[in-house]
Each structure stands twice: as C-alpha cells, then as structure tokens.
C-alpha cells in the first residue's frame, strides 16, 4: 500500500491520478479511488446524451490487447475509448498461438513501435500488466490479469454500490464464490476495505486463498453467516472450466451449499443489492429468480462499466510525471 499517497489524501482532495498505469487497486489511495468514482459520474452523463461522444482523447491511440476471450470487458473498454474519441485497435490473441508465437514482451514492443498511448491488457498470467509496464512506455491498463486483479471491475462495482447506497463505509458486503481464482475478488477486497466497508468473503474451504484474513476481511464457509444483514451480496463466477481440480464434488452440491437462493436472501437487509461480475452460471452460484429479481443490479454494473472505464482512460491520459499546470 502506498502510504505516502494516503498521507497526501488527508491533506487535500486528490485531483489527479499521478501515475502511468493502472495495474491494480492495491496501489491506489482512497482519494485516488474517490477521484475515479467522481469522474465516472461525469462520464456516465456523457452516455445519456444524444451524441455520446466527447473529444477528450482525440488523437490518442488505445490498443486493446486481449489474450483471453472477453466480450463484456473488451466491449466496455472499446465503447469507453470511442466515447472519448480515442482511436482504438483491438488485438485478440488466442492463448494457443502464444505458445508457439512471440513473447508478450515482443508483441508489446512491436505494438509500441506504432506509438500507442495506452495498452489495455487482459492476460491469463497474474502480473502480466506489471511485466508489461516495465517493458513499455505506454500507459498500461489492467483489464484482468490471471488471478491477480481486475481493477476496473472493482471500480464499477464500487460505483454501482455508491450510486445506490450513497456510501461504502460501514456497509456489510458479502462476496461469495470461487475466491481462490478470482481477480475480481482481490480487486474488490482492496477497494472496499480501503473505503471502509466491512467485507465478508465466503466459499468452500478449498476455494479460499491462503492467509485471506490478512487482507482485512472476515472469511467463512457458512453462507448464512456471510449473508446475514448484508447490504450487498456479490457473487463470483464459479469457473466451470477449472473444476477439473475437484474443488467441490458437483455443481449441484455447490448450489445446495452456497447458491444464492431467495430463501438465503431473506437473511440479508431488506434493501440488499445483488451483484455479479458476469458471466453468470444460473443455478450454480445464483438462482435465476435472484438474478432476475428486484435486488439485482447486474445490468447496472454493465452500464456503469463504460463510465468507470472512461474515467480511468481520461485520468491516466495525463501521465505520471506532471509539469507545472499551464
């Protein structure tokens, strides 16, 4: 954690992201997070206009470099970039071709020879964005790296919660599902604890990362305990493709023990919000009645993703080293 930037926060409101990259929530100060969320509010308004486009990033080139299939995140970034008038370039590289093809460093350097200003990277390896930021001059935006972080997802989750609840501090937020493999979890834990929420994480013991309590959260495998009086319930995707490790006996059994049903929902606060980063497995981590029910803000999350990503793109366009303001 960056204590110096946190100390700065206390002295004055943060008005700029003085950094080259967005690699994770871990390195952001609470003030920087608030700045992104505030800026996203302004950006959200842009999406309500007849002409949903502003010239802020005119002349900037953004490369969306996706090494993992992703419809939601990539589309969201692309819309955000276009709404800011950036030139965008989408590169989707199948993981299989990477094995025999060029290295990530070489791909990035080749791209960089074409002078993009930012690279939005989605990659299956944790730390791929850190690695790229050491190799590249371009700003790197983490669109999900392995099991590490997915910072814009956490920012849009926080934005969505703040929009409804007007605050994050003091809320009980239960995050339930495959904690072990989830980058969304890690980013959300960092963000929510930094902004003072009371975070509970819940899943089968086989899917709880080692030493999770050191993140400042309460961990449990009793879903009722996690859901009890929760203001927000955030469900994480059970990655069906990873179940070969037999982390639990069957999807049916997972749903029986951890699935979010209307009955379990009764334990939460009456104004509880149900969130899911998508894509959902209905009948595994969430019952359809809950996903489609009145507490669900899942589609709001998608809509807010564009605004949050616009904010990040805009704020990072300033770069890390700031000269005297003109």
């Amino acid at each position: 954690m960056n204590t110096t930037s946190q100390e700065l926060d206390q002295k004055q409101a943060v008005t700029a992201l003085r950094r080259k990259d967005l690699l994770g929530i871990a390195e952001l100060s609470p003030g920087e997070i608030e700045l992104v969320l505030d800026t996203a509010e302004a950006m959200k308004e842009v999406g309500t206009r007849p002409i949903k486009k502003v010239p802020a990033l005119r002349g900037k080139t953004v490369v969306n470099l996706f090494y993992e299939p992703s419809t939601r995140t990539r589309t969201s970034f692309e819309i955000a970039e276009k709404r800011l008038s950036a030139d965008t370039l989408n590169i989707a590289i199948g993981t299989s071709s990477v094995v025999k093809g060029e290295t990530l460093a070489d791909t990035a350097l080749n791209l960089e020879a074409m002078s993009p200003d930012m690279i939005v990277l989605r990659h299956a390896s944790s730390g791929a964005c850190h690695f790229l930021s050491r190799v590249c001059r371009s700003a790197i935006i983490n669109a999900g790296d392995g099991m590490h972080e997915h910072p814009t997802q956490a920012l849009l989750d926080a934005f969505t919660i703040r929009e409804r609840k007007k605050r994050l501090a003091g809320l009980k937020i239960a995050i339930i599902g495959d904690l072990l493999h989830s980058r969304v979890l890690r980013s959300n834990i960092h963000l929510l604890t930094k902004l003072g929420a009371n975070v509970w994480v819940c899943g089968p013991p086989t899917l709880i990362p080692a030493d999770i309590r050191r993140f400042g959260v309460t961990a449990t495998s009793a879903v009722e305990e996690a859901v009890h009086d929760a203001d927000v319930i955030m469900l994480l995707r059970i990655q069906l493709e990873r179940m070969e490790g037999a982390y639990f006996p069957s999807l049916r059994e997972y749903f029986r023990v951890f699935g979010m049903t209307e009955a379990r929902l009764q334990l939460a606060r009456p104004d509880v919000m149900i969130m899911h980063p998508g894509p959902m497995n209905r009948g595994v981590e969430i019952a359809s009645e809950v996903a489609d029910g009145p507490y669900s803000v899942i589609l709001d999350q998608v809509a807010n993703g564009v605004a949050v990503r616009m904010a990040v793109l805009y704020l990072l366009a300033g770069g890390a080293e700031h000269e005297e303001a003109a």
């Binding site: 008005t15 700029a16 992201l17 003085r18 700045l35 505030d38 800026t39 509010e41 302004a42 950006m43 308004e45 842009v46 502003v54 010239p55 802020a56 990033l57 005119r58 002349g59 900037k60 800011l84 904010a311 805009y314 704020l315 366009a317 300033g318 770069g319 890390a320 080293e321 700031h322 000269e323 303001a325 003109a326």
Partner: peptide
C-alpha cells in the same frame, strides 16, 4: 473540460477535474 482544446497539448500533465454536466 472534456472539450478543452489544451487537454492533449502536453505530453504529460495532470488531467483537469471533470465535473458533471446537468
């Protein structure tokens, strides 16, 4: 702010704070 003609003039510089249009 998002329409300023000096936004991208400097290679690096703090981005001006954007506020909401209503």
């Amino acid at each position: 702010t998002l329409y300023r003609d000096d936004l991208m003039r400097h290679a690096v510089g703090p981005q001006p704070v954007v506020r909401k249009t209503e």
